[in-house]
Structure formats: structure tokens, C-alpha cells
Amino acid sequence: MHELGITQSIVEIALRTAAGQQAKKIHSVTLEVGSLAGVVAEALEFCYEACSQDSLLEGSVLIIEEIQARARCRDCAAEYPLTDLLACCPVCNSAASDLVCGEEMRIKEMEID
């Protein structure tokens, strides 16, 4: 359940940002989460509800946007979506690749009053 620690970081960043904006209320927090980030959206939502109680975040909505992982082949430089972490290049079938994106875990934006 490392989603709890991650949620605590989300709450910390959101409240700090809101304080900097002198926000009276936070309506929503939007995350960008890579498909390989290793977090479960349902677990994040569950922890978020618990962690946001008695704060400006109480009652706000957590919006999770998934970023599809992409890899670049080291042999032929083709770029392809990575649905399976151990997938081979669809062009040349090489197993050697570098991740282009997919491990992101960041707060994109917030909706505040």
C-alpha cells in the first residue's frame, strides 16, 4: 500500500500550493500518472478521501489522467506504445529499448476558489 505515502505527498503539495494562492476552497486536483508508475488509481482515490478530511481538500475531486507508456527501440529507433513492459519492437523485434515516458507521477493542475 505505498499509495498511502504517495497520497500524503499529493495532499502536502496541494495544500502548499493552495496556501500560496490564498485559496478558500479546492474543487479538484488533476494528476498525470504514467501507465508504468506502479500505482493503482482506485487505491489512490481511496487514500485521497481519507487524507483530505478536515482540510481545504475535503470534498474535492481527484482526477487521474493516464499517460500511455512509450518506448524507443535502441536498434532501429522506432517509437512504440508499451502496453507490455517486456514487449519487443513491433518494427524490428528487438528487445532492447529505452522508456520515453510512462513513469510520470505528477500533479498537473488544481481547481480552486
Binding site: I6, I10, I13, A14, K108, E109, E111
Partner: peptide, 12 residues
């Protein structure tokens, strides 16, 4: 309501 950009890594 206003939308503000945060762009901060959660594991920062």
C-alpha cells in the same frame, strides 16, 4: 473557480 497549473512531481 480558477484552474492553476502545478506541474510538480509527486515524488519530488
Amino acid at each position: 473557480r480558477k484552474t492553476i497549473s502545478v506541474e510538480e512531481d509527486i515524488l519530488s
